[in-house]
């Protein structure tokens, strides 16, 4: 018979390396037509990081995402970056880009200030224009300013900067310290059905609500969450590298069982409204944490459905059925 159950799990997860320095650098060049080029040493590994980084550069310069072209991943060309690891790209590389773009922007403010008869610190960027703070009417198009700065004043709008999250060493005896500059939080809730005669677990739905600070690109954050959950589902129910005397016995995708499209539940994603003042425009990160609470919430849902606590992952159908049988036997023993 199929038994329904629900379970939740929450989690916290840090952004960046544990104490160790993990800087990123960036260079932003504003072109004379008001578009910009961003140089970053990180690599696109699928998350859409380069689009997020373009959005951060664009935001700092008052441009649209499409105005920024990103050059990445070439040690001959791009500045250093600790890389696509530790959910750090949006936060650490993003902060470097904000600082680099601000330097380029400051060059433009210097050039625009005399044109608008104000001091540079009284200027802001918005909608591809440089304007007097709060006065869109007193503004000049950014391409005109770049052109003026570069070809008349001889001051091209290029900025380079780096960022490394501040941390405090951990005490070797007690671990006390500040290993990370910021953390994200999340809750996932699973709705499952357990077949108590086969042990098969079907996940009907997962609701996932994550904090990533400001979502720079909500669509890409959703993609991270959905993908993280699929990894979590595999970790929870199916995936395991098996060994026989140190030899892997299932090193192939026939016998290493990862989720297919038929094995994934419907996923409902929610993002909490949060802003981290230390991140680029309030952003933190979204990559790894999405895979963290999934297995836990599924195990709690199994417990809710059939009353067995799975203590060793993955919760294969066989393990679940064995646990159900043990529970039945114990109950019968108690009754006797």
């Amino acid at each position: 018979m199929k038994k329904r159950g629900r379970g939740m799990a929450c989690m916290w997860y840090p952004i960046g390396f544990t104490v160790a320095a993990n800087p990123s650098a960036a260079t932003v060049k504003v072109n004379t037509d008001g578009t910009a080029t961003l140089l970053t040493g990180t690599v696109e590994t699928g998350q859409g990081a380069l689009t997020v980084l373009a959005q951060i550069a664009a935001e700092t310069l008052g441009l649209a995402t499409d105005d920024v072209h990103v050059v990445s991943g070439d040690t001959d060309v791009t500045p250093m970056d600790t890389g696509a690891i530790a959910s750090r790209t949006t936060y650490v590389t993003g902060n470097a880009i904000v600082r680099a773009a601000e330097k380029a922007r400051d060059i433009l403010f210097e050039a625009a200030a005399p044109l608008l008869n104000v001091k540079p610190e009284q200027l802001e960027v918005r909608d591809r224009r440089i304007q007097v703070l709060g006065f869109p009417a007193r503004s000049v198009a950014i391409d005109k300013v770049v052109h003026h700065s570069e070809t008349v004043l001889g001051n091209p709008a290029i900025g380079s900067a780096s960022y490394n999250p501040p941390t405090v060493d951990m005490d070797p005896e007690t671990g006390q310290g500040k290993p990370f500059n910021t953390y994200v939080y999340a809750t996932q809730i699973a709705d499952v059905e357990v077949d108590d005669e086969t042990g098969e677990v079907e996940i009907l739905k997962i609701v996932a609500v994550h904090d990533c600070g400001t979502p720079i690109n909500p669509m890409l954050v959703e993609g991270q969450i959905q993908g993280g959950i699929s990894m979590g589902v595999g970790f929870a129910l199916q995936e395991e590298i098996l060994f026989e005397e140190g030899r892997q016995i299932n090193p192939n995708l026939t016998n290493y069982i990862m989720p297919t499209s038929l094995d994934m539940p419907d996923i409902e994603v929610g993002l909490v409204d949060n802003y981290d003042p230390t991140g680029p425009f309030g952003a933190k990160g979204a990559g790894e944490p999405t895979a963290v609470p999934t297995a836990a919430c599924i195990m709690n849902a199994i417990y809710d459905a059939v009353g067995v606590r799975i203590t060793a992952l993955p919760a294969t159908a066989e393990r679940v059925l064995t646990a159900i049988n043990e529970k039945r036997a114990a109950e019968q023993a108690d009754a006797a």
């Binding site: 939740m8 929450c10 310290g177 290993p179 939080y185 996932a208 609500v209 904090d211 929610g270 933190k284």
Partner: peptide, 17 residues
């Protein structure tokens, strides 16, 4: 580790979920 945490959204995630 004794770190004072900021921008904590745990309970918001719990209640929204």
């Amino acid at each position: 580790t004794g770190q004072s945490l900021q921008s904590v959204a745990l309970k918001e995630s719990l209640t929204q979920a």
